[in-house]
Design a protein around this nucleic acid. Sequence first.
DNA 1: CGATTTGCCTAAAGCCTTTAGGTATCTACA
DNA 2: TGTAGATACCTAAAGGCTTTAGGCAAATCG
Lengths: 191, 191
Amino acid sequence: MARVGLSGARLAQAGAELADEVGFEQVTVSALARRFDVQVASLYSHVRNSDDLKTRIATVALTELADQASAALAGRAGADALTAMADVYRTYAHQHPGRYTAARHTPPATNSAEYIAAGRRHSELWRAVLRGYDLGEPAQTDAVRLIGSVVHGYVTLELAGSFSYSAPDSADSWPRILDALDTLLRTWSRP
Amino acid sequence: MARVGLSGARLAQAGAELADEVGFEQVTVSALARRFDVQVASLYSHVRNSDDLKTRIATVALTELADQASAALAGRAGADALTAMADVYRTYAHQHPGRYTAARHTPPATNSAEYIAAGRRHSELWRAVLRGYDLGEPAQTDAVRLIGSVVHGYVTLELAGSFSYSAPDSADSWPRILDALDTLLRTWSRP
DNA sequence: CGATTTGCCTAAAGCCTTTAGGTATCTACA
DNA sequence: TGTAGATACCTAAAGGCTTTAGGCAAATCG
């Protein structure tokens, strides 16, 4: 009966890896137990329930993503910052599709402070990007919502294969779309 | 043993209603059987398995959405067509959150011709909207992808509650964002 | 070195999926 | 109108996931 050394954090980390391998929806307490070669019930000392596990995985993903975005934004502004931030999201989604899905997963009744904090970091980072385009309110909030929608929407549709039926390759549209967005932001509410 | 009159179509329809009530993820063969007051196994004569059921529900949603979009586009062009089409999506998502989620659900191994046809209708409708802005290739494909991303992304984030933490109301940003998109499309690749 | 905490285990109940095979009801044709 | 065939729904059963309850052994601390 050797102890494996489980903990909430280790389960979240392993769950994130599992999500990338088999898809976030397929991440299950049972599958995770199998991966640690441990009885299922044992995980319930470290995780409240299946939803709790998923929220922890989402928090891991959200935090990693915010860390990468934060690093990418250092020393950049304007169009440079915009594309850097957007690229971080898209690259992360491609490298870690399960984690990305997790990050976008809204837990029912969010009572995890960590999860909420990670979410807030993201919106603050987007606002930082927009400092490069001097927008007042409500234009700035509109712009944050627009950029967030484009990035999330594009990555989601691309990952779902919705862009695979037409030329050009979806990787080619991406920089052109970011470029168009930059133009739009620079001229937002200006004649 | 009165017969209820099950069929693939009725199950898909009832499944769509159930999705709106309890969420697409909670739609289960068992729950649907309960709703018809019938034994679970009975549904398996009409539906291959759980995934098949979900794909049928997705097809119902995709088709309804295409029908509404098609009707809304009749006699409209340019910015008028753009906002009409986008509004159809957003309104549908608000009125039928479960169905909207279903429509966005990518089935593993899509072998349903109906599902594929419905998907194609959507991209053709978007291309029709863009006829109002004379764009060549690849700009037109880029634009279809951009608009699709914005609409899908916005609606998804809004439904997930991501826009509930900041003013103004997400309903107010929407028309301004569509307006900005219209401007962007009118000046796409033009000095 | 003994006591306490805690990590992982066995057991069990409940719900969901899916298949196999049976009975009752509808339909269509003589 | 009666009956043969098709078909709609049923019972039974196996396997998987979730979650709770209670127990033994390993780590930790005085």
